[in-house]
Simulated scan of single mutants.
Amino acid sequence: MSNINISLPQSMKAFVEEQVTKGCYGSVSEYLQALISKDQKRQTQEHIEELLIAGLESGEAIEVNDEWWEQKRTHLMNKLHEEK
């Protein structure tokens, strides 16, 4: 694991230490790791939502059923064989 040094105002340092003292986290490092992990998950969720919105706005909706998947599979297999 790598180390990183950060500077915090006294009020933030006290808050972080309070979270650790309350027993929510085992150490300051664990608290900061949890915050970073939550932010990573939030950013991933935002990206997924952006992709879903882009998909919804990308055009006319189509019905995706077993027949559609079979046609898609056949098309991709044919394309794969053409490339060989």
Rank of each mutant, 00 (worst) to 15 (best):
V64T: 04
Q71H: 13
L35G: 15
Q40R: 14
E70F: 00
V20R: 02
K38Q: 13
K22M: 14
I48W: 05
M77S: 06
K79H: 04
A34Q: 11
H47N: 12
D39I: 01
E82I: 03
I4R: 12
W69R: 10
E82C: 00
V16W: 05
H81I: 03
S58Y: 11
K84S: 06
G26P: 06
E63L: 15
R42F: 11
M1Q: 07
V28E: 10
L52M: 12
A61I: 09
S2V: 10
Q19V: 03
L80S: 04
I36C: 13
R42S: 08
G55A: 13
H47V: 08
R73H: 02
G59W: 05
M1E: 08
V64L: 05
H75G: 00
K72N: 07
E49K: 14
E70V: 01
L76G: 03
Q19I: 04
N65W: 02
S7H: 04
E60S: 14
M1L: 08
K79T: 04
S27A: 10
Y31W: 15
H47C: 00
K72G: 02
E70L: 11
C24Q: 13
G23N: 07
V64N: 01
K72I: 01
E67Y: 08
A61E: 13
N3C: 00
A54H: 09
K79R: 13
V28L: 09
E82P: 00
S58W: 06
V20K: 05
G59M: 09
G23M: 05
A34I: 03
G26E: 15
I4L: 12
N5P: 02
W69H: 07
T21V: 09
H47Q: 13
L8W: 00
Q40D: 10
H81V: 04
K13V: 03
M1I: 08
K84V: 08
C24A: 12
F15S: 10
L35M: 15
T21I: 10
S2P: 07
M77C: 01
V20F: 06
H81Y: 10
T74M: 04
E17G: 06
H75A: 06
R42A: 12
Q43I: 07
L52Y: 07
K22D: 14
Q45W: 02
K38Y: 06
T21K: 15
N5E: 11
T74G: 02
P9K: 14
L56W: 07
H75Q: 11
M12F: 09
S37H: 12
Q45K: 12
Y25L: 07
L80M: 10
K84N: 11
T44G: 00
K79N: 00
L51T: 03
I62C: 04
C24D: 12
I36D: 03
S2L: 06
E46I: 12
I62D: 01
N65A: 03
A34E: 14
S7W: 04
R42T: 06
K41H: 08
E46T: 08
N78C: 03
I36F: 09
G55K: 14
E57F: 09
E83S: 14
M77P: 01
G26M: 08
